[in-house]
Design a protein around this nucleic acid. Structure first.
Lengths: 253, 253
DNA sequence: TCGAATTTGTGCGTATGTATC
DNA sequence: GGATACATACGCACAAATTCG
């Protein structure tokens, strides 16, 4: 007991509530900077760490954003845009590289003779350590990082051809589907498994987001008509900017 | 400087590495209990708090599991099973209720005259506050909670018919597709948007997982042939048990 | 049945690191 | 380079949950 303050919950929760209501009331507007923790602590009559806990709570929910050396800012509410990952109604072209309707650029970096890690090998149906081509992509749209992709292709599929390297040869930048077609391979299916993750420091820097932010990791595998995996990739998409969308047509009865 | 210990990183990271390697070496097996924080701290020559931070790190990655009053346990490694959300090759029946190929049971609870919250109303293309039928589901498979679903249907669509309530009437438990068909409405498309979230205490209790665990929240909307939304739902799926899978057929060139 | 001991979970204070201005 | 502000790490005290005698 001997809590002092009127409320019933923990001090940092009450501070969080007061911060929340000030934002809701428009006292602090999106993009604006909050007073420093010292000032807020003095104003609310609590220690700086209590303010810090409250801010961490609001940061984790995406309402606030902390910038080291600068201050704590009110984040603009969801400007999430759809990132379409299925053909949908319109017959948008699909390359297996960028999402449907994606407009932007990318940078790529390939490693020619990478050894497949166990989990990647399992997805590709090859033995662990088998030679693969590993390519890392960084997609940008409007000069903002959109997603990170690491793609794996078995040398057993593409080895010796002019399309071994995704970003080299005549079909550079045309995606998996076109490159496989050049080898006489038809990519018939793509399987995607989205999974929630937290980004590590390196990923956060590349994506321009806070360390520990939530993101969706999509494990994607392309299959040919015979059901053989021809490529697999890990696709990392920040949760707060994009709205991953699957548009599925239902067969008529 | 003056760190003392041999490594280069923070003490709690080294402790985490040692815990990890003991599990990898099979000294502690899945399901087994670790020594208490005090014992581990004494053994490693660090404070209890350092052990706690290390354990929290490993808990957040899903390697360990803490049970209040009992101990810290090694979690069984991912037995994640696929949860198929698209028709795939086989023509599995789709009701809009359970995922494709789902075998299990569910409990449902409907509220007849719920007012649509703003975000739900936007998804349904109705005005905020418009009357809807809200239904909460808890899906179970092998007596384990699988997912929580909250479904919203506008009264403007189903009102006055015998299928107003999803779990009442002649088509109870047959899903959205069959119930809409009874009204002469063909459900032609379903759009799903998966997004990472952390479960709150109530959700964690219902799902039998730890508070704050990661989960995927799928916002799903069913559309009729005219493109009108006829139902929308929030589907919450724990990340560590299920592998959400979209199997997409690519149109031939 | 109940209560004490044990163990994890939570809240809070302080010192140090690091990015920004 | 100095000052400021947030980020990270560590330690302590207490609450909550579980277990067991």
């Amino acid at each position: 007991m001997a809590d002092g303050s009127s409320g019933d919950s923990a001090p940092y929760l009450r501070v969080a509530a007061r911060l929340r209501s000030r934002i809701a009331d428009g006292i602090w507007t999106p993009g604006g900077r909050l007073p420093s923790r010292g000032e807020l602590g003095a104003e609310f009559g609590v220690g700086e760490n209590v303010v810090r806990r409250a801010q961490e709570l609001l940061i984790s929910t995406g309402l606030l954003e902390g910038r080291a050396g600068s201050g704590t800012y009110v984040r603009a509410p969801f400007e999430r845009r759809p990132l379409l990952r299925t053909p949908s109604a319109a017959g948008l072209p699909y390359s297996g590289l960028a999402p449907f309707g994606f407009t932007g650029t990318w940078e790529a970096d390939s490693t020619a003779k990478a050894e497949a890690p166990p989990l990647i090998a399992a997805r590709l149906g090859v033995k662990a350590g088998d030679p693969c081509v590993r390519t890392s992509y960084e997609f940008l749209s409007a000069r903002q990082p959109v997603m990170l992709t690491t793609s794996w292709e078995p040398m057993a599929v593409t080895g010796g051809s002019v399309v071994v390297l995704p970003e080299g040869g005549p079909l550079a930048g045309h995606g998996v589907v076109a490159r496989m077609a050049h080898l006489g391979i038809t990519v018939a299916r793509v399987v995607e498994s989205p999974r929630p993750v937290h980004v590590d420091r390196d990923q956060a820097h590349l994506l321009g987001i806070a360390t520990g932010s939530q993101a969706t990791l999509i494990e994607r595998t392309h299959y040919d008509t015979g059901g053989r995996p021809v490529e697999t990739a890990d696709i990392l998409i920040p949760a707060d900017r994009w709205d991953i969308t699957y548009d599925i047509a239902l067969p008529g009865t």
